[in-house]
Design a protein around this nucleic acid. Structure first.
Length: 122
DNA sequence: AACTTGACGAGGG
DNA sequence: CCCCTCGCCAAGT
């Protein structure tokens, strides 16, 4: 069969495609990605997919949890590797291992989040 | 085919 | 602000 299931890309491919678009020094949360994928997708699933991601082809380190911290903990990867990689890209973490999402969180065009900051018009 | 687990997230205490 | 619980969906056993 010639027709590739491009339109039926597994959610994995979609997740990888999104993650691959995250610029250096920027991050996205699992929930944010799940929201982009649409209904039927949850942060849980995104995390599961990321676990199987090719660490050589995907900037997996730029995906963190909603608290601004690395969820990798001590699982597939040596402790603090993810945070270390992000710090190397310019992302600052505090003593609690959390970064300022308001400053580093990135959204692709068409998926910008609403401003949480109040209007400066006063 | 059913049950358990998991790189999450929001809400309540 | 930290800790615990429930909900979510796909994969592995």
């Amino acid at each position: 069969m010639e027709n590739e299931p491009v339109n039926d890309q597994k959610y994995r491919q979609r997740v990888y495609a999104i993650v691959s678009e995250i610029p250096v020094g920027r991050v996205m949360t699992y929930g944010q990605i799940a929201e982009m994928l649409g209904e039927g997708y949850t942060p849980r699933t995104v995390g599961f997919v990321m676990h199987a991601a090719d660490t050589k082809e995907v900037p997996w380190q730029r995906v963190i949890n909603s608290q601004g911290a690395c969820s990798t903990g001590r699982i597939t990867v040596p402790i603090n590797l993810q945070q270390k990689m992000l710090e190397d890209e310019g992302v600052k973490f505090n003593e609690k291992g959390r970064c300022d999402l308001n400053a580093y969180r990135w959204s692709p065009e068409g998926f910008e989040q609403e401003d949480e900051q109040p209007s400066l018009f006063g």
